[in-house]
Amino acid sequence: MAETKKYVRIKKASIEGAWYADKLGQIFEVYYENSVALGAVCYGYYSVLREDAEIIVTEKRPAKVGERVLITKPSPMGKQSYKTGDIFIVNHENTPAFGGVRTSDVTGFIGPKEYEVIVNNEIKNEEADEMKIDLNAMGYDELLAHGDAVMEAIKKRTFQEGFQAAKQVQRKLAKMKTSINTQARRDEIVEQAKADVEKLANKYGYYYAYGRNPKAEFIVNCEKRTVVTILRWIADGQIVARGIAKAAPSDCFNVHIGRAIALRRALGLTVPDEYLNAPQPTEVRVGDVVRGKYADYYYQLCREGELGDDSYEAKIREIADGKYRYVGGGYDFIDDADLTIIDDSREEVGE
Rank of each mutant, 00 (worst) to 15 (best):
K5G: 12
K6H: 15
K11L: 15
K12S: 15
A13H: 02
A13E: 00
W19P: 00
Y20P: 04
Y20M: 04
G25A: 04
Q26T: 03
I27V: 14
Y32I: 06
A40G: 10
C42Q: 04
S47K: 10
V48Q: 00
I56C: 06
I56K: 01
I56N: 02
P62S: 11
P62F: 05
A63F: 03
V69W: 01
I71F: 01
I71P: 00
S75E: 07
S75N: 08
G78P: 10
K79M: 04
Q80T: 14
S81D: 10
Y82F: 14
T84Q: 13
F88D: 02
V90I: 10
H92P: 06
E93Q: 14
E93T: 10
S104M: 09
T107D: 15
E114A: 05
Y115M: 01
E116V: 06
N121L: 06
K132W: 01
A137E: 08
Y140H: 07
E142H: 04
L143A: 07
H146S: 06
G147T: 15
D148H: 03
I154R: 13
K156F: 13
T158A: 05
T158L: 09
Q168V: 05
V169E: 07
S179T: 04
T182W: 00
R185K: 15
E188F: 15
Q192E: 12
K194L: 00
A195N: 14
A195R: 14
K203L: 04
Y208D: 11
Y210C: 04
G211Y: 06
N213A: 12
K215Q: 13
K215M: 12
A216Y: 03
V220G: 09
T226N: 03
T229K: 05
T229N: 07
L231W: 01
I234Q: 11
A235P: 01
V240T: 04
R242W: 10
A247M: 09
F253E: 06
N254P: 13
R259L: 00
I261W: 05
T270K: 10
P272N: 07
E274L: 03
L276E: 11
A278D: 02
A278P: 05
P279R: 11
T282P: 05
Y294C: 03
Y297F: 10
Y298A: 11
D309A: 02
D310H: 04
D310R: 09
Y312G: 08
K315E: 15
A320F: 10
R325V: 05
V327Y: 03
G330H: 06
I341M: 07
S345I: 14
E347G: 01
E348H: 13
